[in-house]
Design a protein around this nucleic acid. Structure first.
Length: 497
RNA sequence: GCUCCGGUAGUGUAGUCCGGCCAAUCAUGUCGGCCUUUCGAGCCGAUGACUCGGGUUCGAAUCCCGGCCGGAGCACCA
């Protein structure tokens, strides 16, 4: 018997634990918050979103909610060669699946004239010049901190070249932003703002031939859209510095740049371009192949958005790189699924067993709860007539088996016989407790595993009532998402144990 | 090579700015126990980290210098 003092102490501890659970995982405050916080998620439409995009999307979305601010979806399609027309819709679908919503959407290819306008302003202000030097020659000069011959061109000549740019072939000229030729980092020196692209844009066609470089369009748009905080990967560190020159030249306020580290994912290092190639060559079944790190692949596997959200919030915006293990994701996902997932029997590697000596009283309809912790969800009915399929390994490895909620059997000369009925008796002989499926009344089932291999077996009859996207726990097997249900057949995608 | 940035348990993360309350947080994983008609969940317990070497200081995960390791950028991609 515990003393009152001990009980009080326990309650205190319990209370503390509760509190900690509630206050779990918060994002740090943003700096320089004055007025409305405006953020953007700005993917390049080269394919569907992957787990790396999810980080940017979720963090931006979380801050939008935290500060009751605004999130803008900006599609950055200023390189006609890197545009996949299917990606525009896929990006929005993926964001919707993630539960990320946005207030405004803009597509940069709709804004080309705006970039022209600001390019011209920059030329007139003397902060940009038209450079016709060969790339290699410019680099040589740049690396020595020397100006190229075009740098000191008169404004009038720059404007003449700028207006003539449309008549030049690709590679003939670029518009450069003046920065600092003595900048320590050669990459920052006089970077390219506009270039000629002779390639039909998949979305807007051939109406333009001059396209902005990302550093230019991004800086112009971030300012025009009133972006206050820019969250981006640390691979953009140098770009942020390049973009600062645009703000400086125009006299604009610079947003807060926040750079986070690289996200590495165990077993998945596939870039969008490699994935696309793999799909084209038939190595992968599509963008949602379970081996890929795309949002849709992860979703198809029964990973919940809540798990992805929690993961991204936990990782946060650290600039140091992070490696995510599947175990981490599974652990987070299991928390969500454990409560949500109803239980069903799936027998893989099925072995038919006919049980001898069955007493009449052991036959009938077996009822088993949908979820042991939530009896109010009701139960499934599984008819038991002595003829069942069991997992082959269970049959081979054990002398005594208890078929859950039905009977205890024993094997003699590879034949199965009735032993007893109660759980207690099963315990007395150390019977292995196993799941089973009726030999007659069942569904053909297959489970697509994370490596895309397919495990075939049989599922209990009530699986016929399942709907696509239901996530269930296949007892003694693991969590799986229902991918397709048809007459007498069901297909699952395996999530994890 | 040049420029910049990092390095806390297996993994993720807190703490680092403003040294002491840090013999370092929380989560996940792993192992063990209890419970249980699932290999799940829950509960209890265990496990395990400040990259290394100097320096400053009464005192360093925290500040300084150097090494090591890792990453990013160095495009007419984003």
């Amino acid at each position: 018997m515990k003393s009152q003092v001990q009980l009080d102490e326990l309650e205190k501890i319990g209370g503390k634990i509760e509190e900690k659970k509630i206050e779990e995982k918060k994002l740090p405050e943003l700096i320089n918050v004055e007025g409305e916080v405006v953020l953007r998620f700005a993917p390049n439409p080269s394919g569907p979103l992957h787990i790396g995009h999810a980080r940017a999307a979720i963090l931006n979305h979380e801050y939008m909610k935290k500060y009751d601010g605004k999130l803008i979806l900006r599609i950055e399609d200023t390189d006609p060669r890197r545009v996949d027309t299917g990606a525009y819709d896929m990006i929005e679908e993926d964001l919707k699946w993630l539960g990320v919503d946005w207030q405004d959407k803009i597509i940069q290819s709709d804004r080309i004239p705006i970039y022209y306008e600001y390019a011209e302003k920059l030329i007139k202000m003397g902060f940009a010049y038209m450079c016709t030097c060969k790339g290699a020659e410019f680099k040589k000069l740049k690396d020595l901190s020397n100006p190229c011959p075009c740098r000191d061109l008169e404004t009038a000549e720059n404007l003449r070249r700028w207006n003539d740019m449309e008549n030049m072939p690709e590679g003939e000229a670029v518009l450069r932003v003046k920065t600092d030729l003595n900048h320590k980092n050669p990459a920052i020196r006089d970077w390219v703002a506009m270039r000629i692209v002779e390639y039909e844009h998949p979305r807007i066609g051939s109406q333009f031939k001059i396209y902005p470089m990302m550093n230019f369009s991004v800086a112009i748009d971030d300012h025009l859209l009133g972006i206050t905080h820019v969250l981006r990967g640390k691979d953009h560190l140098a770009n942020s510095e390049k973009q600062r020159y645009i703000y400086k030249h125009f006299g604009w306020d610079v947003p807060v740049f926040i750079h986070y580290g690289r996200l590495k994912m165990e077993d998945i290092q596939l870039s969008t371009s490699k994935a696309r190639l793999g799909i084209k060559e038939g190595v992968y079944n599509g963008w949602d192949d379970p081996r890929l790190g795309t949002i849709r692949a992860i979703a198809r596997r029964g990973i919940t958005r809540a798990a992805i959200y929690n993961l991204m919030i936990e990782i946060g915006l650290k600039i140091a790189d992070s490696t995510i293990s599947w175990k981490k994701i599974y652990g987070l996902n299991r928390k969500v699924l454990e409560e949500a997932a109803n239980r069903y029997f799936f027998v893989w590697d099925p072995s038919k067993v006919i049980i001898g000596n069955l007493p009449e009283r052991s036959l009938g309809i077996i009822k088993r709860s949908m979820h042991p912790d939530f009896q109010d969800r009701g139960y499934r009915k599984i008819p038991f007539d002595g003829k069942v399929y069991l997992v082959d390994e269970d049959v081979k490895l054990h002398k005594y088996l208890r078929l859950m909620d039905a009977v205890n059997v024993y094997f003699k000369d590879k034949e199965a016989f009735f032993h007893s009925l109660s759980l207690e008796e099963a315990r007395d002989v150390n019977a292995q407790i196993v799941h089973w499926v009726p030999a007659e009344d069942n569904l053909k089932a297959e489970v697509v595993m994370p490596d895309a291999s397919v495990l075939k077996g049989l599922a209990e009859p009530s699986c016929a009532d399942l709907k696509v996207d239901d996530v269930v726990q296949l007892e003694r097997f693991g969590f799986a998402r229902v991918d397709e249900v048809s007459e007498g057949k069901i297909r699952f995608y395996f999530a994890h144990k």
